[in-house]
Every structure is written in structure tokens, then in C-alpha cells.
């Protein structure tokens, strides 16, 4: 694995984040910096990544681990290039999210929490994402995909594959 080290640009971002808090309160920067790290280092947080964040913010590694394990958006093991996070809480459920989850499972041939053999897709079920009026829905990267139907899921999968091919 490549050495864990932020680019100059990201390091500047870290400085900018720390400056939002009073002097000596740089621990407050932990969650924003973990987001940055997850984005920069393959979509998940390895022990090395967390130790690196600890050193940047002058924290004990345990302070980083206990936060990283608490929040559901931090992935503690590798995930596919495209992470489908499908909401399954009440309002989505009454709008058909169970069928969407089943459809994705069949289509990709994976279960919940699994990644396709080519490392392209991971399926995760999540709790309410605050898009109840536009259900069923999922998070894909930074954005929401709403009003899901099997046809829309097909489109999203095709879109991801063509994006991956282009890269």
C-alpha cells in the first residue's frame, strides 16, 4: 500500500478546517478530516490512515479509532468503487425499498454488505437519509439518487460502468 500522505492541497484544507475552531481545539477538526482522508485514500479508513490523521491533529490514535468506529459513514474495510447505500427505514419501506434492495442483489449477484468480484460495486443498507418524500432512494457518493425503480437502478449501474471504463 502506498504511503499515507495528503497532497499539499489537502494539507491546506486541513489547516483551513483547524482555523475554524479556537486555539487548542483542533480535535474538533477530526470528523471533517476523517471525511477528507476517506475520500483521498480509497473510500475507507485503514489503521494507517487513522494513525496518520491522529498525527496531523496531535491526537492519540485511540481518539481517532473511537470516533471512526462510532459514525456509520466511515468505512472500516475496503468498499467497491461505487457504494450503493440504500435506505430501508419506514418511509422508504412503505414506498418499496425492500424490492429495490432485492433487485440490486439479483442484478449484481451480491448480498448486503458484499462487493462484486470486480471490486466495482458494494451494496449497503442504511437507515433514514432524510429523503423520505422522494423514496425509495440511495446515496451514491456525494449525492442522492431518488424515486428509484428497477429501470432507474439499471441506468445507475450502466452509468457507473461507463464512468469506470472512461477512467
Amino acid at each position: 500500500m502506498a504511503e499515507v500522505q495528503f497532497s499539499e492541497e489537502k494539507l491546506n484544507k486541513v489547516k483551513e478546517i483547524i482555523a475554524r475552531y479556537p486555539a487548542g481545539k483542533q480535535k474538533s477538526a477530526l470528523i471533517p478530516v476523517l471525511h477528507l482522508a476517506q475520500e483521498a485514500f480509497g473510500g475507507w479508513l485503514s489503521a494507517e490512515t487513522m494513525d496518520y490523521v491522529a498525527s496531523l491533529l496531535q491526537l492519540e490514535p485511540i481518539e481517532v479509532y473511537e470516533v471512526a468506529t462510532f459514525y456509520s459513514m466511515f468505512n472500516l474495510k475496503p468498499v467497491g468503487t461505487y457504494l450503493f447505500e440504500v435506505c430501508q427505514t419506514g418511509p422508504c419501506m412503505v414506498s418499496g425499498s425492500d424490492q429495490i434492495v432485492d433487485y440490486i442483489k439479483n442484478k449484481l449477484g451480491i448480498g448486503v454488505g458484499e462487493t462484486t468480484a470486480d471490486g466495482m460495486f458494494t451494496l449497503k443498507t442504511v437507515e433514514c437519509l432524510g429523503a423520505c418524500g422522494y423514496a425509495p432512494m440511495m446515496q451514491l457518493g456525494k449525492h442522492y439518487r431518488e424515486h428509484l425503480t428497477p429501470a432507474k437502478v439499471d441506468e445507475i449501474i450502466a452509468e457507473c460502468r461507463s464512468k469506470a471504463n472512461a477512467n
Partner: peptide, 25 residues
């Protein structure tokens, strides 16, 4: 602006404050 990271409990005001301080909610 500070982003959380997926925890319903951080809507509770003291948990939110803890989270804003860089801790578990």
C-alpha cells in the same frame, strides 16, 4: 459549516456538541 458522519443521536443537542468537539456522539 461542520459535517457529521452518520449518527442520528447527534441531533440531540449535547451529543451534537460532543460531535462538534470531535468525539463520539
Amino acid at each position: 459549516v461542520q459535517r457529521g458522519a452518520g449518527a442520528y443521536i447527534c441531533g440531540e443537542e449535547t451529543a451534537l456538541i460532543e460531535s462538534l468537539e470531535g468525539k463520539r456522539g
